[in-house]
Structure formats: structure tokens, C-alpha cells
Design a protein around this nucleic acid. Structure first.
Lengths: 231, 231
DNA sequence: AAACACATTAAACAGATGTTTGAATATTGT
DNA sequence: ACAATATTCAAACATCTGTTTAATGTGTTT
């Protein structure tokens, strides 16, 4: 049946995404995967020709979703603002899209965990696809939006700015994920909360606060480094 | 012999640090480790009571070195400036210490690679030690130095600022490491270089440019968000 | 020199790993 | 309804994993 044919493949992809994000590629056995997806152990080799390939398809699928969502959101902003968005609005979209994809998704922490693992040595075969399909389009669209907001900015200045912004985003996401890991170690958790109080709130509050901070921090930096030339 | 007793242990630690940073904990077998260190396979269990423990000792050793270097550098700055450093100087020290530790070390990419792996799920038992021995002291000293530079800043504002700075540092280091991985894939490398030209330079030039950018970006942000109250 | 604790060694261990097999079952096209 | 194709399944495969063993070597102490 056509529906079932996708069913096992799809159940495998879902289970894999969740498990890989949670425990890491090397720490998930095919048998564990098969059990979680309620399929036979041979299914992963039958449908994906190996564990490695399954991993590739998992992150590719998630990347495409994330990319399209971000591109659409940037597009919407440009039309809504008649091509003249604010820097804060553009940055806000980038932050929110990443936060949602990383902390909301099915299984709570899927996208950025996967991406972090993808970034590790040993998985560099996927790096090419990742840059071509994910980084390049999103970065291009983001750059155009920022330039629409600040026509004076040069390409190289933009490279630095976006790197600083993305770096902050990933770091704040990582902090939340680490916070979750430390639930089992109350003493360490307390130390972490003392050093970074915002982690004491709920996920949605944390997301809001982080978003607002990155926007304020980054726009202030941009304004300070490259003052807007308003005639 | 006393000298040799340390020799195998030390060779094992060195080999482990390099291999773990390069390939990741799970992707290095004890036999591989033993071969690299030119010791017997049983040595790691004899001296470290297991692979996991060896990993702990490896990152603990590196963390202590890194922590002490950073604390000393911050201390020096405070005495040199009679307790009144500039924000840019304080940030500069944090950035430079991280860049050196991450990109210079023996085996080229040791410290931050290890730290990134340590941050992964499954190694949370070390997270407690990490926060108590590494994050807390460095963050405390860094905070005091920043407050010495900007007496008006509140603790919570400091939390956000330092998170943004550390996030940038880690991200720029990660970019350089990923750039190295892509040497074998010229096409992807070219895409990466087009999106982020600074990676086209040498490591030392990259470090300098990154340091300068983070300092400028972050001080501009701080100045913009929390204007200095100069009477 | 004998006794001692420590270190190194090659070999073996038990278990988990990814993958393959070949038969059984289900789905499809005609 | 029948043949052809696609999928599922339990079992077996070879290999690699971390760890242990028991024997041998090494330097120090008595």
C-alpha cells in the first residue's frame, strides 16, 4: 500500500530525528532505532542503505523545512514593510525562526542539536550540501533584507554582523539545552542559574527575553559601528 | 621507573586529547589510542580505570590550564590599569585567551573541540565539574573586570552581555574549524569563503580580525545599550 | 639475593555493533 | 485470479567494542 510504504520510512525518519538529536549519531544503535519506530532492524538498511544515509536524510529534511520557513518569513517582512524593514525586524525574524526550530520542534530539541552534530568532524561529506542548500540561501536572503534596512552597509561588514548574530543565537539555544541536561544534577543547575538567571524561566519566556536581547544588543552594535546616514 | 610511570600516562593523555578533539569520544577506540600513544591496550584501563575516566582527565587537565591562563591575564590587566581597565581591554583578553586555547594548542584544535563535545548530552556527569571549576571562576573574574570598567552595570545586564560575547567567540572558532574540515571539498569551501571572506586569510590574521571585530561589535553594543555615565 | 610492589604485555572475553540473508508476507499491475 | 514486485521478518554474519586475565618483566627494598 502506498500509504504504508511511506509509513515505515516516515516512522523511521521521525524516530531517528528524535533519537539522533537526543543522544547523538554514534550513541543510537540501529536496533534502538528500529524499536522506537516499531519496525524491523533490516528496515533501515532496506529503505536507507545504511545508518549514515538515514542520518543524512534526517537532517536534510529538517534543513529544508527550516530554510523555507525562514525564507518565507523574510519575504513576508519585506512585502509588509514595502521593502523598507527595520534592522530590528530583520534580526528578530532570524532569531525567532532559529529559536522555534531549535527548541520547539517535535521531540523538543531537534533542529539545532542535529545541526551541531552535523558540524562535527567525520560528517563533513554533508557539509557541502549544508552550505549550498541551507547557509547560502538563508544568508543571501538575510543579507538583502538587512541591506534594505541599511542601504549603506557593505557586503563584508554584513558578513561580520551576521556571524555575530548567528553566534549569539546558537549560544543561547545551546544554553537552554544544557540547562535541560542539568535537571538531573540540581547542584550544578543551581550554579548555572546563578551565573545566568534567565534560564530560570519557562521556555517561552526565555525565548522572548533572548530574542529581545539579541535584537537590542545587535542593533546597538550596528548603530554604533555603522551610524545610519539619515539625511 | 618513576619517570616512565608518568611517561605512559602522559603519552596516553596527550594522544587522547588530540584524538578526542579530532574525531570525538565515541569515534576513538582504545586500540587506536594505545597505538597512537605506543602503549598496550590494557594501559588505559590500568591507569585510568576505563575510557570514560581518561576522557574526564583529559578535559579537566586542559580546562585547568585554560582557566588559570585566563584568570592570570585578567588579573594582570587589572593591576596594569590600576583597577580601571577599558571594556575593550577586558573583552580583548577573553577573546584572545579563547582563540589561543582553541586554535593554537598542541594538535591545532584541542580545547574548544573538547569543550564542544563535553557539552553534548551523555557527558552531563562532567557538566557539574565544568561549571564549578571552569565557568564559574572565569565568569566571576570577567564580571568583576567589566564592572571595574563600567561601574554602573548591573549583574543581570552583565549576564546577557557576557553570553553574547562568549557566543560570538565560540561561533568564530567553530567557523575556522569547519573551514579546515572543508579543505577536502574545494567547491563547498569556495561557497563558505564567498559567504564569509575573513576565512580566506591565515589563522593569525583571522584571529586578529575576529578579535578586533568582537571587541568593536560588543563595546558598541554595550555603549548603545547602557550609555556610560561620565560626569 | 630474595621478596616485594608496580608496570607492561599478549591473549582471551563477553557483548554490542552495522549489515546481510533467504524465506514469508503483502501489494501491485494485468 | 495470477504473476510480479515490493516489503517485512527472524536469524545469522563478521567485525569491532571496552574490559579483564594471567603471565612476564622491571626497579626498589629488605
Amino acid at each position: 500500500m502506498t500509504e504504508d510504504r511511506q509509513s515505515t520510512k516516515c516512522r523511521l525518519l521521525d524516530a531517528a530525528e528524535s533519537l539522533f538529536a537526543e543522544k547523538g549519531f554514534e550513541n543510537v544503535s540501529i536496533r534502538e532505532l528500529a524499536a522506537a519506530a516499531e519496525v524491523n532492524v533490516a528496515a533501515v538498511n532496506y529503505h536507507f542503505q545504511g545508518k549514515e544515509n538515514l542520518f543524512h536524510e534526517v537532517i536534510l529534511r529538517r534543513f529544508v523545512i527550516q530554510r523555507d520557513k525562514t525564507l518565507a518569513a523574510l519575504d513576508d517582512l519585506l512585502t509588509e514593510t514595502d521593502g523598507h524593514p527595520g534592522v530590528d525586524q530583520v534580526i528578530g525574524i532570524l532569531v525567532r525562526q532559529h529559536m522555534e526550530g531549535a527548541l520547539a520542534g517535535p521531540g523538543s530539541a531537534s533542529f539545532l542539536s542535529l545541526m551541531a552534530r552535523q558540524m562535527q568532524p567525520g560528517h563533513s561529506h554533508m557539509a557541502g550540501t549544508f552550505f549550498k542548500e541551507m547557509v547560502a540561501p538563508v544568508y543571501g536572503s538575510f543579507s538583502r533584507a538587512i541591506i534594505a534596512a541599511r542601504p549603506g552597509l557593505k557586503q563584508e561588514q554584513l558578513s561580520w554582523i551576521s556571524a555575530s548574530i548567528v553566534g549569539q543565537i546558537h549560544h543561547f539555544i545551546m544554553r537552554w539545552q544544557k540547562r535541560q541536561d542539568l535537571e538531573s544534577d540540581p547542584e550544578s543547575l543551581q550554579i548555572m542559574l546563578r551565573a545566568f538567571p534567565p534560564l530560570g524561566f519557562s521556555l517561552s519566556e526565555y525565548s522572548e527575553q533572548v530574542t529581545e536581547h539579541i535584537i537590542r544588543f545587535s542593533t546597538a552594535a550596528i548603530d554604533g559601528m555603522y551610524p545610519e546616514v539619515t539625511p
